[in-house]
């Protein structure tokens, strides 16, 4: 049963990379079920991340947000700050796709805080970039310019010319 779980996970990833997102979802749901049977929280967390990602490419953004929220909850239980940051970043982007900019900002700010805590300047730069766009969408140009300036400063520091 444990090997079946790993095989379903790998099958889900392969379908995903081939662009077969429906099949990827089915495999990752099987993987999730087996992870739960074993109480394997890390595998459960991975399955939710993979399900969230596949749902984005199916255009099912609300479903993706639910999967990413489960990822976030488990990342917190597992005390994995890097995965928590990644889940917040995914949620920020997914809420942007849902055009819920207040929620997008809420999660991008959470991502920003963790990136700062982990001294992840590239993550911090991405958070500022995303926040600038979300504040622009809301018409809050003062905050938008603040984050665009932060994004520029960090991009210069890390040598990212694009």
């Amino acid at each position: 049963r444990a090997a079946q779980g790993r095989a379903y996970g790998n099958l889900g990833n392969t379908h995903y990379l081939l662009g077969n997102f429906r099949k990827a979802v089915r495999s990752h749901q099987e993987r999730l079920q087996i992870a739960r049977e074993f109480g394997d929280k890390s595998a459960e967390r991975r399955a939710y991340s993979n399900l969230g990602n596949a749902s984005v490419f199916l255009g099912e953004f609300a479903v993706a947000a639910d999967h990413y929220k489960r990822t976030l909850y488990l990342a917190r239980q597992l005390r994995d700050r890097a995965v928590e940051a990644q889940a917040c970043y995914s949620l920020g982007n997914t809420y942007t796709l849902l055009q819920d900019y207040e929620k997008a900002i809420e999660y991008h700010l959470k991502h920003l805080l963790i990136a700062q805590e982990l001294t992840d300047r590239i993550g911090e730069g991405r958070a500022c970039w995303s926040l600038g766009n979300a504040y622009t969408a809301l018409g809050n140009h003062e905050q938008a310019v603040h984050f665009a300036e932060k994004h520029l400063e960090i991009s210069k520091e890390v040598g990212d010319r694009s």
Partner: peptide
Amino acid sequence: FSSMHVMHVDSVQHWMKDLRLMAECE
């Protein structure tokens, strides 16, 4: 921001490009 515009938010596009190759291995 229309729904079509959302798909073209540069930071979201950049994220989706990375996401397309992101598969968390067993």
